[in-house]
């Protein structure tokens, strides 16, 4: 399996604002890799370093130490050229938290085209890609609309379309659902899942919402600049105490099952669907009766 991202021992500290102050260490010794086509959720409290990590992966920031490979190319090499950086940026895109601050053009389709225009593609090709990208995210109807009048979820889908149109292999979502209402969140999550399952786009989804993390193939939990856990949603959410300690949460289903387990029931914790959770509880209650 091809690794699209490979990070080993990455560290980063924000320089101190004033002289004499200690620099703010955001990441220390972070190592992980992401396979092509994987859907990885990154969880972590505010200030855990997850957004810094996203900026490093998009080559907006340069790590202080460690190595970072994008698409097999070492980006931390001393003689990495601007061209190499641009080439890597073509592969890895980012969708940000605030939908308003990433849309450049007033009209939806022109914003989607922005990235392709930067790549210098011929106009007919851009047209085709923009139309198909808008269709993928279900925004064709809004192609000629003004971006600022759209809902939050729609704006994020426009931003996603911009990344698809550039044929990105990997998209990093930096808390892209944090400012949305439940309907908008659902829209965006459906789009993300579709991208991953149908288009084979590698997804790194940074979020605070535990139920979004349960949709991923793999969950990385960050705390104080380090990776605390790295595993499937089942593995990660089976350890609620550690997550609570890291200022995070678990899905309500897991919390309920955990309470049962504490009371001596023999139950699994890694169930996120209410119906399956109910079945598990019923089974455990039944077992206890016998």
């Amino acid at each position: 399996m091809n690794k699209i991202i490979e990070a080993s021992h990455l560290s980063y500290a924000y320089p101190a604002d004033e002289e004499g102050m200690a620099p703010h260490v955001a990441l220390r010794d972070v190592s992980f890799s992401v396979n092509e086509g994987e859907f990885v959720a990154i969880l972590g409290h505010n200030g855990s370093g997850k957004s810094t990590l996203a900026k490093l992966l998009c080559l907006v920031l340069e790590p202080d130490g460690g190595q970072l490979y994008i698409g097999g190319k070492n980006m931390t090499d001393e003689n990495v050229s601007d061209e190499d950086v641009y080439a890597a940026r073509r592969q890895v895109g980012m969708v940000f938290q605030n939908p308003d601050n990433q849309l450049v053009a007033t009209i939806v389709e022109e914003d989607v085209a922005f990235g392709c225009e930067n790549l210098g593609l011929p106009s007919e090709k851009i047209r085709k890609r923009v139309d198909s990208a808008l269709a993928t995210v279900g925004m064709t109807k809004y192609a000629r609309h003004e971006a600022h009048r759209l809902s939050g979820g729609q704006k994020q889908r426009v931003a996603i379309a911009g990344a698809i149109a550039m044929r990105r292999k990997c998209i990093i979502f930096d808390e892209s659902t944090a400012m949305l209402d439940p309907a908008g969140r659902k829209e965006v999550m459906e789009t993300i899942t579709k991208l991953n399952r149908e288009e084979g786009v590698t997804v790194l989804h940074i979020t605070h919402y535990m139920n979004e993390a349960t949709m991923a193939d793999r969950v990385i939990v960050m705390s104080d600049g380090c990776i605390l856990m790295d595993g499937t949603p089942s593995e990660v959410f089976s350890r609620p105490e550690e997550l609570w300690k890291a200022n995070l949460d678990v899905p309500q289903t897991t919390e309920l099952l955990w309470r049962m387990k504490k009371a001596g029931y023999d139950v699994r914790l890694d169930i996120f669907d209410p119906r399956l959770c109910a079945e598990e509880i019923a089974r455990a209650l039944d077992e206890k009766k016998d």
């Binding site: 998009c58 907006v60 641009y86 940026r89 073509r90 895109g93 980012m94 450049v104 389709e109 022109e110 085209a113 922005f114 990235g115 392709c116 225009e117 930067n118 790549l119 210098g120 593609l121 011929p122 106009s123 851009i126 047209r127 923009v130 911009g162 990344a163 550039m166």
Partner: peptide, 13 residues
């Protein structure tokens, strides 16, 4: 992040 590097080499839709 969206590969903007100024006007050079840029095309329009």
């Amino acid at each position: 992040c969206r590969c903007y590097t100024g006007g050079e080499g840029r095309t329009r839709m």
